[in-house]
Nucleic acid binder design. Sequence first.
DNA 1: AAAATCAGCAACCGCTCGGTA
DNA 2: GTACCGAGCGGTTGCTGATTT
Length: 322
Amino acid sequence: MGRAPCCDKATVKRGPWSPEEDAMLKEYIEKHGTGGNWIALPQNAGLRRCGKSCRLRWLNYLRPNIKHGDFTDFEDRVICTLYASIGSRWSVIAAQLPGRTDNDIKNYWNTKLKKKLMAVLPAMISQSQRTASLVSPLQAASSFLFSPLPHHIPSPPLPSLPSPSYYLPLALQSSPLTHEISFENPMQHYQLQKDGSGSIAYGGSSGDGTCSSSEANCNFSSTSSTVGGTSSDRSVSYDFYPYHGVEEKENLVPASSGGGGSGCTVGGGEWTQKVAADKAWGENAVTADYGFEEIKQLISTNISTTSCFLFDENKVGESVYY
DNA sequence: AAAATCAGCAACCGCTCGGTA
DNA sequence: GTACCGAGCGGTTGCTGATTT
C-alpha cells in the first residue's frame, strides 16, 4: 500500500504559478506568516494549490532577499568546496550562501558548475601528470576557473575557535557564528603542521582567529591553499570557509579521539567516505570520461590533499578517508 | 524560415526524519 | 513503543526559450 497523497491531485492546480497566485501567496504569508502549517495554508489563502507547492514557491521564488542570476566565483568555490566535503546536501550548501536556494544551487551545479569542472579537469590532470606537480588537477582547475577572491571583503573579528588539532576538512567546521557573521567572514587562516604520524593536522589558533581584509594570505578555498613553507617541512597555511549548520554527527572530531592519525573521520563514521585509491591524482592514469561520482571523488581527493593533508608518505595510494 | 537540438530552470515526486498522540 | 502526519530534502521531469543545422 502506498503512502496517501498529501493533497487531492484532482482538485489541485499544478504547473507554473500565475502572477495572481504569487501575489495571493505572498500577501497571505506577509500578513499571517506560514503558521507552521503548509497543508492548511493554500486553503486559508484561497489558493487551489498543494501545500508543498506553496512552500516550494515561497522558498524558491517569493521569499524576500532571494538572489537570482549569475553566481560569483566566490559562490562557485563555496559550492565546490562544500560539495566535496558533504556531497549533494544542497540545503546545507544553500545555508552558506545567503539569498540562494537549494533548488537554485542544485540546478546551477547540474547545468553549469559540473560541466565547468569537467571541461577543465582533463587538461589539468594531464598537465599535473606531465609535470609531476604537487598541485592536484582540481587545484589547478580551480585556480584556472576561479580568480582570487577580493581582499576587500569586510571581516569583523571572529569569535575564538577551538584550539585542538583536527583531522577534518575545515569546511565541516561547526561554528557558533551566526549566518550573517559567517557570510561576512568567509575566510579563516589556519596553520597546518605535519604531526608525528605522517599525517598533517590542523592547528587552529584560537587567539588569532581573525582574518582581516588587509592580510595578504587570506586566500580562501581549499583549492587555493598556499604552501607556506618548504616541501620538506610541509608547513602549510590554509584558509577555509567557516562552515556551520551541520548536524551533530558532522562535528569535528579532535585528532586525539579521531582516526588514530591515519585518516580523516567524521563523527561516528557515518559520514566516513572511502575515496578510491586509484582515483588519487597523479597515481594512475585518469581518463577524461568523468561521471558525477568521478568528479566528486576527484574533488574529494583534492580536499583530502589540500584540506586534510592526509597523504601518507609510507602508504601512497592507500584509501583516504574524510 | 523551419525543424531539431540543447540548456536552463521551475515544479513535481517520493522518500526520510522528527514531532506527537 | 508505535503509528501517523507534516515538513523538508534531493532527484527527476518537463516546459520554454535559445541556439544550431
